[in-house]
Design a protein around this nucleic acid. Structure first.
Lengths: 189, 189
DNA sequence: CAATTTGCCTATAGGCTTTAGGTAAGTGCA
DNA sequence: TGCACTTACCTAAAGCCTATAGGCAAATTG
């Protein structure tokens, strides 16, 4: 009975890979056990339950995404920062669709507050340093940027923009142009 | 053995109600059978499988949402049309979270093409008649509007904007102001 | 009113989740 | 080195969900 060397960490990482291969929805404790060639019950020593697994994958993905975002923002400002950050989201979703879906998992408030989700909000706010916005418009803009990034990526992943002209890549560039223009010229209330 | 009067239609409608009550993810053929006080196997005369049920709920929700959108757009133009249409999305999601989640279900291309999703795209394009955009910017704008509406509503539903100032309602109004300003002043490429 | 179709049933099989309790592999201390 | 202890994985089992096959009774039709 050789030991497989399971840990919650390794399970979450393998779960993330599995999510990218078969979709986050299809990630199950059973499938993960199969992947480690181990009986299902064995995983329950490391995972509280199925939801726990999904939460761990979500947290891992949020962190990866935040790390990439931070790397992209380093040394950039203004529109340069805006597009680099936005591209991180889009590229991550294309590279790791399962992880991106995981990152959308609804976390309970406590878990969310302790997650890398907080860094995401901070980074979005950092982008706005390159623009001349004061509160409460800054918060409105943070929320709008998050909405556009998430909304665009998720519609694109759902196939909403494929099989129609113009190319999604072109729209993405123009949407970022538009956001930049908007932030430079945010309407007064 | 009295008959329960099951039809695919009624099942989809009941499934939609169930989705609003317990979440779209939790909608199962079993739960639906319980609701009709009928054995599970009986539903399989009307539904091909579990996915079929979910698809029907999605199609029904897309149609309801399109109907509301059409009603909102009637007799409106410009910013008035923009906000009325956007509010339809947001209000629908708040009123019917399960149905709204269902409307995001990824449909296969054939089903999607025959769905009310097509009307949604047409209506979004109709809103832009009130602004001075020509192709391909019109398409870029259509995609951006869809992204903002979907992104904002879905982040708001996930609790992203609660427990923080300012109020989500205020941000929503300002985001629509910003979109209107942007569409009136779309940057040249 | 008989024949046919339709609607819901029972029975059954297989998959996923989760808990309880057992056994063997690794760890630490004398 | 040897023994106790802990840890890691196991078997077993119950509960719920999906899905199919085949049966009987209720509705429909001529």
């Amino acid at each position: 009975m050789a030991r497989a060397g399971l840990t919650a960490e390794r399970l979450a990482r393998a779960g993330a890979e599995l999510a990218d291969e078969v979709g986050f929805e299809q990630v199950t404790v059973s499938a993960l056990a199969r992947r480690f060639d181990v009986k299902v019950a064995s995983l329950y020593s490391h995972l509280k339950n199925s939801q726990d697994l999904k939460t761990r994958i979500a947290l891992l993905s949020l962190e990866e995404l935040a790390d990439r975002g931070a790397a992209a923002l380093a040394g950039r400002a203004g529109k340069d920062a805006l597009t680099a950050f936005a591209d991180v989201y889009r590229d991550y979703a294309r590279e790791h669709p399962g992880r991106y879906a995981a990152a959308q998992l609804r976390l309970d408030p406590e878990t969310a507050a302790a997650s890398a989700g907080v860094r995401h909000a901070q980074m979005t706010r950092a982008i706005l340093r390159g623009y001349d916005l004061t509160e409460p418009d800054q918060t409105h803009a943070v929320r709008m940027l998050g909405s556009v990034f998430h909304g665009y990526v998720s519609l694109e992943m759902a196939g909403g923009f494929s099989h129609s002209e113009p190319d999604s890549q072109e729209t993405w560039a123009r949407v970022l142009d538009a956001l930049d223009a908007l932030l430079r010229n945010w309407p007064a209330s």
